[in-house]
């Protein structure tokens, strides 16, 4: 009974990966009529020695770390707050409203924010200048563009962290909080010593999911800046897309995709191992 599953997995996962790895060993332009040329590891050599490789890695890391930190902090804080206030009227509606950004397609969210960020006639600068402040080049200032994209991602994906952690909090038996109250623990101590330790596995899982997603983040950046201005938001996935579908260099893009795959796998594996050693997930958990 195992063989069909293995065969299906091989078909869905292994075959495309092998195809990309093989493509990365050829120099091939999508519009080139002459057949692809075998170049071995040359595509990888040019990739890692190019200036844009270093830039793309740096931008990807900055984007991932910043967005992940903000989304986790905000999502957990919101979940704890909504969980504490769960008996108040209207909290169900509030929960739904807070979760709504997830329902918006990322590219739609990006275009919507792009219009709001427009420096000359966007609504955000309309309010800012109305307060007598200078207009902000949200997506056109090299020092702000990446942060503005982080803001879009935070708006869209914090609800995922919020909902997941909230579900975990709801699963904690109420007796735990009652016992803490009997021990005179206030809301802060209850959160710190009862709620968060109980949902740490949920937090780790949602953090890993967001990490993987952020390392691959693509639609929002392409729909807002395409990596610009200059290379201010030129992340690794944007580099792959630009190489494949703007420059049509399939071999180079395949090599970059393989590097991203390895990079994400290594980062996630190292993190999972580190977390497993702490006993939160995996073999070490108690």
């Amino acid at each position: 009974m195992l063989y069909p599953v293995v065969a299906l997995l091989a078909l869905l996962v292994a075959v495309p990966v092998i195809h990309v790895v093989v493509a990365s060993l050829y120099r091939r332009n999508l519009f080139q009529v002459r057949p692809p040329r075998w170049v071995g590891l040359e595509n990888y050599y040019y990739l890692v020695t190019s200036a844009k490789f270093e830039v793309a890695i740096l931008r990807s890391m900055s984007f991932t770390v910043t967005a992940l930190a903000v989304e986790l902090a905000l999502g957990i804080a919101l979940a704890v707050w909504v969980h504490r206030m769960r008996r108040l009227p209207g909290m169900g509606l509030l929960r739904t409203v807070l979760a709504m950004p997830i329902l918006v397609a990322p590219v739609v969210a990006a275009v919507m924010w792009r219009f709001m960020f427009q420096p000359d006639f966007g609504i955000l600068n309309h309010f800012i200048t109305g307060l007598g402040l200078p207009p902000v080049g949200w997506l056109s200032s090299p020092s702000i563009a990446l942060l503005a994209i982080v803001l879009i991602d935070v708006w869209q994906w914090t609800p995922l962290v919020f909902l997941t952690v909230l579900a975990g909090l709801h699963a904690i038996p109420p007796q735990y909080f009652e016992a803490a109250e009997l021990d005179a623990a206030g809301p802060w101590k209850q959160t710190l010593h009862v709620a968060l330790p109980q949902v740490r596995r949920v937090i780790v899982i949602v953090a890993l999911l967001r990490l993987i997603d952020l390392l691959r983040a693509f639609e929002i950046i392409v729909a807002t800046t395409q990596g610009g201005p200059g290379d201010a938001s030129y992340t690794f996935p944007v580099m792959i897309w630009e190489t494949a579908f703007v420059a049509f260099e399939i071999g180079d893009a395949a090599a970059a995709s393989v590097v991203l795959l390895v990079l994400v796998s290594v980062i996630v594996t190292l993190l999972v191992r580190a977390i497993a050693r702490q006993g939160v997930v995996g073999r070490g958990q108690g």
Binding site: D120, S140, S141, P142, P229
Partner: peptide, 15 residues
């Protein structure tokens, strides 16, 4: 105009 750094054709037209 700083918008130049991320402007698309339609934004220039709007300007």
């Amino acid at each position: 105009n700083p918008a130049s750094l991320n402007a698309l054709e339609f934004e220039n037209a709007e300007a």
